[in-house]
Design a binder for these strands. Structure first.
Lengths: 148, 148
DNA sequence: TATTGTTATACTCTATAACTATA
DNA sequence: TATAGTTATAGAGTATAACAATA
């Protein structure tokens, strides 16, 4: 009790649990979307496009907090899967507008189902009230700390 | 409303928020412990040792869910900082028991403070009740999904 | 000259495999 | 021969920097 703060105090923090659980969660989600030819970042890009960020690739990069070159790679792969289209802006031919295809929306829906499956798995040991309260807390934090 | 599930549904999931917030949280924690010469995994190892997992390096590796070779590297660095000691088990000279030094406990305490600072930053926009409920939900999930 | 997208390159993190020493 | 730890190597993921096309 006269201890300085140790392991128990670290485990009590939000940041420690977010970090460790985030890694576990991402790993499980990745395992489920792998069969679709996707990584979690692909799902993130699909979601950003679906949310209406039909913007230029540079804008997407800053919204997702990744390097522009990564958007190129992700978009290349999604394009090969027929999930997105690139259309040159006729008013500024440097710009490429990314947009979801029907197949892209279908893939996104499959990602959502994968995420919901992982959710069920992760929160299986929680009561309904606990699940609700956790979900709300995370959404609130997400709205405050994440762009868009 | 006749839409298939899209971006909004993905953002509503626990796994999506855990993944994205976990990345943000880890990044902020990493920035704070960098000045101590540490990465988040160093803090994790210090915490595991403080929690009493004084075990062999191989046991540590499986407890933390990382490769044994990573424990070697982390322990090397912590030893250079004077934070851990390696003592050969006299009964089986292949085994090295890692243990925290006073400096290691001091470093761990500084990690805890860093984590608490990040917590305050992350949850600044939440009410006390929201913060409590989030913290409880995460700890509960952590106890169920994480080893040890 | 500045900006968008792309390509080339390098860096970080971590795992797998090969190796050493003890058992 | 099997195991703990170590070292060497390789792969994934992503960023930075150089480049091309357009403005």
């Amino acid at each position: 009790m006269n201890d300085v703060k140790g392991a128990a105090a670290l485990r009590a923090t939000v940041v420690f649990n977010l970090g460790t659980l985030g890694a576990v969660a991402s790993e499980r989600f990745a395992a489920r979307v792998e069969a679709l030819g996707l990584k979690p970042k692909h799902a993130g890009l699909l979601a950003a496009l679906d949310a209406g960020a039909a913007a230029s690739q540079l804008e997407l990069a800053s919204r997702l907090g990744v390097a522009p070159s990564l958007i190129v790679a992700l978009a290349d792969q999604l394009q090969e899967l027929g999930a997105v289209e690139r259309v040159r802006d006729p008013e500024d031919r440097r710009r490429q507008a990314l947009s979801l295809t029907a197949e892209g929306r279908r893939l996104l829906a499959r990602c959502v189902r994968a995420a919901e499956d992982v959710d069920a798995e992760l929160t299986a040991g929680l009561s309904e009230a606990q699940r609700t309260s956790l979900t709300r807390g995370l959404r609130l934090l997400g709205e405050q700390q994440l762009p868009g």
